[in-house]
Simulated scan of single mutants.
Amino acid sequence: MKETFTGGGGPRGAAAPSGPLTPTAAPAPAPAALTAKVRALAPTMTRSMQRVAETVAADPAGCAALTVTGLAARTGTSEATVVRTARVLGYPGYRDLRLALAALAAQQAAGRAPAVTADIAVDDPIADVVAKLAQEEQQCLADTAAALDPVQLDAAVAALVAARRVDAYGIAASGLVGQDLVQKLLRIGLIAHAHTDPHLAVTNAVQLRPGDVAIAITHSGRTIDVIEPLRTAFDQGATTVAITGHPEAEVAQYADLVLTTSTARESELRPAAMSSRTSQLLVVDCLFVGVAQRTYATAAPALSASYQALAHRHDPRPGH
């Protein structure tokens, strides 16, 4: 994946930058983002590093009280493994991870970072299903908000504002999210297309050029039908954006900007597509609102006109 850049739509400058492009170091994740970070990166870690990561996410208060030697002993690993895990999670060293764990423990104690709820059981009453799903959705949104890099998000908004054309690629549930983004952008006057057919996605991506934006939406980051058109758009010089729960996955190799979503727990009655859709829609809404803010002079009347054009279809009176 490329470096993070401010002031525009990526290192190739496909979107008109407002100032010089300068690489920025990624900040350490906020305490509330730690759980989401562990979920996203655990598949890429060694087993010993996974033990460390899962332990600190499950018991931040207990681990915050441990020295690096103590955590290594608790997880049956080495001090070097603990330090490597901290760095993979985005912290300069174990001391920084320990401070984040203490902050996360304080948030949980104050009720601002609730613990993960139990899985839905086959015999759960419907009231319990509602409560568990609501808690999971809230946690998913909170994790995504914490994991989103505001620098990357701001650059993506800037690229969309300057775009000649926007293409969104997604399959299945992610395709629905792409359609949601496109219909929002269309209503404020942008030229946008959503592609769920992989062949049409690639043939349209070939037509892109610098000044266009291509957005790939894939929770796993490994969906070939989404990666191929993004790679094509990348090769054509368009600014490319990936919305994914796995920023280390292949899709990021062809993305100028990566917007990370929550990687929520998957269970038999709650497949990944449910939680990923929730977090992806939050990112889409952030992009839309950001674009609408920056283009308010044209976006507001365009949105009003679209409402007026459809008003008669919402009139309940007969004949209207």
Score class of each variant (00 low, 15 high):
2 K>A: 12
3 E>P: 01
4 T>G: 04
8 G>M: 02
9 G>P: 00
11 P>N: 00
12 R>E: 12
16 A>G: 09
16 A>L: 13
17 P>M: 01
18 S>Q: 12
26 A>Y: 08
26 A>F: 05
32 A>F: 09
33 A>L: 03
34 L>Q: 06
35 T>D: 12
36 A>C: 07
38 V>F: 08
39 R>D: 14
43 P>V: 10
43 P>S: 09
44 T>A: 15
48 S>R: 14
50 Q>E: 10
50 Q>R: 15
52 V>S: 06
57 A>R: 05
59 D>H: 13
61 A>L: 13
62 G>W: 03
63 C>W: 11
63 C>Q: 07
64 A>C: 07
72 A>M: 06
75 T>C: 15
75 T>M: 03
80 A>V: 14
89 L>Q: 08
92 P>Y: 03
92 P>R: 11
96 D>C: 00
97 L>P: 06
99 L>G: 12
100 A>Y: 09
103 A>F: 00
103 A>V: 02
103 A>G: 07
104 L>M: 11
112 R>F: 11
119 D>G: 14
119 D>I: 11
121 A>F: 09
127 A>S: 14
128 D>Q: 14
132 K>Y: 02
134 A>C: 08
134 A>R: 12
135 Q>P: 07
135 Q>R: 14
136 E>W: 11
138 Q>K: 15
142 A>I: 05
144 T>F: 00
145 A>G: 10
146 A>H: 03
146 A>E: 02
148 L>S: 00
149 D>R: 00
153 L>G: 01
158 A>Y: 02
164 R>T: 11
168 A>F: 06
173 A>K: 15
176 L>K: 10
178 G>M: 04
180 D>K: 15
185 L>Q: 02
187 R>T: 13
187 R>G: 01
189 G>T: 05
193 H>E: 15
196 T>F: 01
198 P>T: 02
200 L>H: 15
205 A>C: 09
205 A>I: 12
210 P>R: 13
211 G>E: 08
211 G>K: 08
212 D>Q: 00
213 V>A: 08
226 V>T: 13
228 E>S: 14
232 T>Y: 10
234 F>N: 14
236 Q>I: 02
237 G>E: 08
238 A>Q: 05
239 T>V: 11
250 E>R: 14
254 Y>A: 07
263 T>N: 14
265 R>L: 10
268 E>H: 15
272 A>D: 06
275 S>M: 14
282 L>K: 00
283 V>I: 08
283 V>A: 04
286 C>P: 05
286 C>F: 05
293 Q>W: 10
297 A>S: 13
299 A>F: 02
301 P>M: 00
302 A>N: 10
303 L>E: 02
305 A>S: 11
305 A>V: 01
308 Q>V: 13
319 G>L: 03
